[in-house]
Design a protein around this nucleic acid. Sequence first.
DNA 1: ACAAACCGGTTTGTAATACAAACCATATGT
DNA 2: ACATATGGTTTGTATTACAAACCGGTTTGT
Lengths: 99, 99
Amino acid sequence: MSEIDRVIHEPVRLRIMSILQGVDRADFKFMLSTLGLSKGNLSSHIDKLEQAKYVKVHKGFNGKMTLTEYSLTKRGRQALSEYWAALDQIRNSPQDDGS
Amino acid sequence: MSEIDRVIHEPVRLRIMSILQGVDRADFKFMLSTLGLSKGNLSSHIDKLEQAKYVKVHKGFNGKMTLTEYSLTKRGRQALSEYWAALDQIRNSPQDDGS
DNA sequence: ACAAACCGGTTTGTAATACAAACCATATGT
DNA sequence: ACATATGGTTTGTATTACAAACCGGTTTGT
């Protein structure tokens, strides 16, 4: 019975991972408006994902302004896929086949 | 975008709900051994589910010993089904159809 | 030139909570 | 009578999701 990954399980982080899975890279502002979070909240969730090495942070510039972008790592993709598998297992666990 | 129900989202409670969905009624001891929790932990999670009216607690006796059983309420079944729907939405959100 | 407002985030404080340990009441050996 | 087991509940603690406050730098008045 594979355990549920709590890093991913938190809904905000699950949404972050899902978004990143679709777009390759996304910047802070985009995430903020898409998710509807406070800046501090987004920042700390990203921290957790970075510490788990599920997300890579790219710091750079857009003209003179700083610009931070995020992407999923390979580990992140792997972990997300395993997360869904674990959930599926719970979802289907009480069911009998009809045999 | 329907929100994730935090009462159900907690993995232990999700497992409790899933088990109850399959068995109609289950007692404390059965849940304990199936889930592998401490008694206190199980008790407090059940409390939360009861407060949310997702689970009904049936107190009675087995001979002279107390016996507590649990069952899903209609609300509980409904909430669980909505929970899975909400998760599916997140899971599928970044995908394009090929059109 | 200087201040005020804005942008792009990070750090800090707080309220909620998952969990185990301690506890309680009753029952069963011996 | 006393220890041990059964069936739970209450209490204490460490973690953590979140917003508010903050900070370095930039743009916009005036």
